[in-house]
């Protein structure tokens, strides 16, 4: 259906208006990271006049701590994408296609578990991580106060959503294609890997993106289960920055926050096309 010219103008105006507050917020963020002080959207120098632009807020990029935090964030996010990706695509397929005892209970169970907020589970998870930490050799990497432990917990918390999401995508695929592949000579694993997975690529992309962002921005779990700068990820590092320095240098905080966003922005720029295609791709399949 063709939209009229007036209608199109109206929708543009509406869209622009609705992103103005967000744009103002980001503009402030960028200006703040480059000034000593700000008043409204304007940078202010020591004399109270307009000016005083500086790069001194960005000095932290030459320190090791922030890079360590960034690496930890990346490790958590990537581990989550891989862990959630594998478990959700295989589990979602099984739940969508196979009949087995306990299937229904499992489905409702995961849904109920998803309703529990992570906060309620913190203490129980603490004990689990302590036990895991006691396992010889690998314990140091997946127990309490380790990046692996944090990633493990985050994967577990993200799985219900992931499995349900992927199950939904698999549910929408025709059985015929699968039957054709079985008759063509493929085994179950090959059907999943070569025939079914390529059909749900948009779903995998969406899940990977959500999971990556959740892992990158994770705060509560890393904050609770890590001690000290060595295993801190970016959000925890930012929090330490706020609480360690008094008075708080908000312009420094803004710069670190901005720094945390940069990888996400780059990620978005490169995947924008793919993300916009998720919807179109999903409906093209049949």
């Amino acid at each position: 259906m063709a939209t009229g010219k007036v209608g199109r103008r109206f929708s543009y105006a509406f869209l622009i208006l609705s992103i103005v507050p967000i744009l103002i917020g980001y503009t402030w963020l960028v200006i703040a990271t480059l000034s000593t002080r700000t008043q409204g959207l304007l940078p202010i120098n020591a004399e109270g006049g307009i000016g005083g632009l500086t790069l001194s807020n960005w000095k932290f990029v030459f320190e090791g701590d922030i890079w360590n935090a960034m690496l930890n964030s990346l490790l958590i996010a990537v581990a989550m994408v891989i862990g959630v990706g594998i478990a959700s695509t295989s589990g979602g397929y099984a739940l969508s296609r196979f009949k087995f005892p306990g299937r229904k209970a499992f489905l409702t169970g995961t849904l109920v578990l998803h309703a529990f907020k992570a906060e309620m589970l913190l203490i129980a998870i603490f004990f689990v991580l302590r036990w895991l930490g006691a396992i010889p050799v690998i314990g140091d990497y997946i127990g309490f106060n380790s990046v692996g432990g944090v990633a493990l917990v985050m994967v577990a918390l993200e799985l219900p959503l992931g499995i349900w999401l992927m199950k939904g995508f698999f549910d929408n695929l025709s059985w015929d294609m699968e039957r054709a592949a079985l008759i063509d000579g493929a085994g179950r694993f090959r059907v999943w890997w070569q025939i079914m997975l390529p059909q749900v690529r948009p779903g995998i992309a969406a899940l990977a993106l959500f999971t990556f962002i959740a892992g990158w921005n994770a705060y509560l779990v890393p904050f609770t289960f890590t001690i000290g700068a060595k295993v801190a990820n970016m959000p925890v590092f930012l929090n330490q920055l706020i609480s360690d320095t008094a008075p708080v240098n908000w312009n420094l905080v803004a710069a670190v926050g901005m720094f945390q966003m940069i990888p996400l922005i780059i990620f978005f720029i490169f995947t924008q096309e793919l993300l916009l295609n998720i919807y179109a791709g999903g409906s093209k399949g049949t």
């Binding site: 025709s174 015929d176 039957r179 054709a180 592949a181 079985l182 008759i183 063509d184 000579g185 093209k284």
Partner: peptide, 20 residues
Amino acid sequence: VAPKDRGIGMVFQSYALYPH
């Protein structure tokens, strides 16, 4: 006997081609 070992070919109403 599994479908793949039955020596059959099948044509579906929905064609069931692999779109990728």
